[in-house]
Structure formats: structure tokens, C-alpha cells
Design a protein around this nucleic acid. Structure first.
Lengths: 216, 216
DNA sequence: TACTGTGAAGTGATTCACAGCG
DNA sequence: CGCTGTGAATCACTTCACAGTA
């Protein structure tokens, strides 16, 4: 997708590591002390060697003959994945999608916190989402962003406005963009853009359903 | 992710084909008659050979020395991708996410149409989304689904309820599930499940930002 | 012993390069 | 000539298999 010098971690591994970290937090809560690559792999039905490779990539955390110490590994993974502190997140667009994300658990825990939404609808500006995130004036994105300290921005506006919303966020100094609009935004120098076009999921599903008899 | 006899089209190609089809519709609207693999590739910055391979997989639609005839190709792609007719879609969960999807253009055009949402909130049941999609009683999913004729269901409920929502949808006879909850659902025999955990996107972004200095 | 970490083999997807055709 | 379709080469990811160690 984008030519970068060293791809560090091969994209697909990212998702596995996120899943593993999530599982570790559950295990930790259950008081489990150690876990093996096989046990972790089983949960998500991928191979144990894969789990070991993924984990080894970030350092040597395992204990031979035993497995991994759950809290050690969780803490290390968290740090290595950039989830050690809290990332303030801002969302452009306070429509249904924006509000869904603003109140979503995954966007307000384990390293993330939605600090503001931006919208250009007068009736929404000044209000708050159900969980209390303020909705600010989209015209002031660039001006207000620095004070919010966010490093990640989410584009949750209709496709036609995605470009300008993204530009405003980038001008405000964000380093990462998660784009839900079905439009390609950027590239912007020095900014990482990740596209999450929800329609593609639906189309992919239809395609697979059509092609095969939807096997097990 | 799921063991199937023949994987038909390699998952990643699916997304490219969706994108290409979308571009073709735009070109068609602009009255463009033919387009080459190179021109299509340029738009999304992938390689022209990749585009040709992807398209060739579905049949020989190109004209040597000329390119592809836009409307021909669009129609063929549409059919081969299972987007020829209209897929009725139902959504479990009429929260912000469910309503966002119900009113999203991509879920109500080019082969899809959201025909109903299901929720267990009394205040929502009997109502409609902004664009007029009815919200029905979640307790009656199994009973009402057959009449709706939907073949694709979307799980847009909180993680804790994802399993039961998915089960109800499958019992109602759906063949494809798009799951937005951060919980693995299924597997169900004969049903295709696609997971779209939005938190993974955010975590992936944080990971990449952390690892690299967010190169161009 | 039971498990990790990892080189080597295997598999799959991407890119190259060109023959073949309108 | 320009562009498609595609075998061959390359590159990337996954799985295997095992040496090494608590």
C-alpha cells in the first residue's frame, strides 16, 4: 500500500497481536499466571508457531518449558504496541457513526480516549455525546486541536467531506488518521492514514457468498 | 481464517475488485468508454499487472491494444461479484452504529438495501431510522426474518450480546454475517462470518505510529 | 519434560516480462 | 503500436521441525 523503508511488523501480525493482548487482559483478570503459545493460538485458531513468531518479534518474553507470564507479557506487549500511555483521539463528524465510535468501549479504554468530536451542525455544537464527549465546531478544528493533545484523528463524515475534514485534522497536527469514508484521503507527508471502508466488508461478504456455497 | 475447499478469490483481491467496480461506475457516469489496466491501477496505486490478474480471474473482458470497455466490464464485474441483484440486509442493534449503517449510502446502493433493524429497546421498536428503515423487536428476529428475505445480517450490538444476536440471525436463515462486535461469533455451519472489529483498526494505527516515525 | 525461539521448507500473493492479438 | 493475458521470478507470510533451555 505504501512504500516504507522497513515494514517493521507485517500488518496481519498487528491484528493478531491486538487480539492476543486482549486475551491476556482477560486471563490476567481471571488470575491466570502463565499461558503457552498453544493455548493462546487455540483461542483464535491460528498456529502456535505463528504466535511465538509474533511475540518473539517484539522481544524474548517467554520462559522455555513454561510459557509466558501473563502480566509480564501483557505489559510488554502494551508498551511495544504503543498502547502504554493514553492516546487522545478526536473524531471529525458527530453523526451516528461518530457518536457510536465516541462512546465505544474499544475507543475509550486500553490506551485510547475520545476527547472531542467536531461537527458543522449548529444544533450539535456545544452538546455532548451520551458518554459526555464534547461536540465542537468543525470550523475550529485546526485552532483547537493543539490544546486537545490528540495524535490520532478519525474521519467519520460523509464521503464528500472526507477530504477537507482530513486536511483540517492534519493541519491541526495529527500524526495518524483512521478514515471511515469510502474515499481515499491523503497521502499527507508524515501522516499515517488507515482506511476502514465499511462498505468493502459488505461487498466482500456478498462476493464470497456468491462464489462458494458458503462452506462451513 | 475459515477453511474452505477452494478459496476462489484471495481475499485481498476482493477489496481491489470492489474498488475497481466503484471506479468503473464513476467512469461510466462520466461517459468514459474504455479504460486500461494502467489507468485503473493508477487511481489506487496498485500495479497494472495486478489489475489484469484480478480481472482475468473472472473472465476475459479486455480487448488487446485497447483496454476494457467500461460498461461491459462494470456489468460483468457486478454479476461475478454477486452484486447483480439486490441483497436485502438486516441489522441487529439499532444503536448509533446500527443506525449509521442503516442510513449509509454503501449499504443502500449498488446491490444492497437495509430492510430492517432489530433492537430490544421498547422505545425504539416500531420506530424508523432517519431514512425510513423500520426498527423491529429483537425477540422476533427468527420469526420475522424469512418474510424479509434477507441473506446478509449485520451484528451491531455490544460485545456481550453479539453471540446471541448472531445465533438468532443464523436461526432465521441468513447465509452471511458481518460482525462489528469485538467478540468472535460462530462458527455456524453453512454460514459465512466476516469480522469487522473497529477497535483493531485503531490499535493497528497506534502500533504503526509507535513503531515508525510515521514515514511519508 | 514442556515449552520457547528460530532456521528451513512450504505456500501464497505480487511483480516482472513478454508473447499474442486487435 | 498499445494493451491484454499469463508463465516465470520474486517477495512475503505461514507452517514445520527441532535444537536449546528453564
Amino acid at each position: 500500500m505504501s512504500r516504507r523503508r522497513e515494514s517493521a511488523v507485517p500488518e496481519a501480525a498487528t491484528n493478531r497481536l491486538s487480539l492476543i493482548l486482549r486475551a491476556l487482559r482477560v486471563l490476567e483478570g481471571e488470575g491466570v499466571v502463565t499461558v503457552s503459545s498453544g493455548q493462546l493460538a487455540e483461542r483464535f485458531s491460528f498456529h502456535s508457531a505463528q504466535v511465538r513468531k509474533d511475540l518473539a518479534q517484539l522481544g524474548e518474553f517467554g520462559v522455555r518449558g513454561l510459557g509466558y507470564r501473563v502480566s509480564d507479557l501483557a505489559e510488554n506487549l502494551q508498551r511495544r504496541m504503543g498502547l502504554a500511555g493514553v492516546h487522545p483521539v478526536v473524531i471529525a463528524g458527530a453523526g451516528h457513526l461518530g457518536q457510536a465510535l465516541a462512546d465505544a468501549t474499544g475507543f475509550n479504554s486500553n490506551g485510547f480516549r475520545v476527547v472531542a468530536l467536531f461537527d458543522d451542525d449548529r444544533r450539535k455544537i456545544g452538546g455532548k455525546t451520551r458518554s459526555g464527549v464534547p461536540i465542537l465546531d468543525a470550523a475550529r478544528i485546526e485552532e483547537l486541536l493543539p490544546a486537545l493533545g490528540a495524535d490520532i484523528g478519525v474521519v467519520a463524515v460523509p464521503g464528500a467531506q472526507a477530504g477537507s475534514a482530513a486536511t483540517a485534522l492534519v493541519r491541526g497536527g495529527l500524526k495518524g488518521l483512521l478514515n471511515f469514508a469510502p474515499t481515499t484521503v491523503g497521502p499527507f507527508p508524515g501522516v499515517l492514514v488507515k482506511n476502514a471502508d465499511l462498505t468493502l466488508f459488505l461487498e466482500g461478504l456478498a462476493f464470497q457468498l456468491h462464489g462458494t456455497g458458503a462452506g462451513s
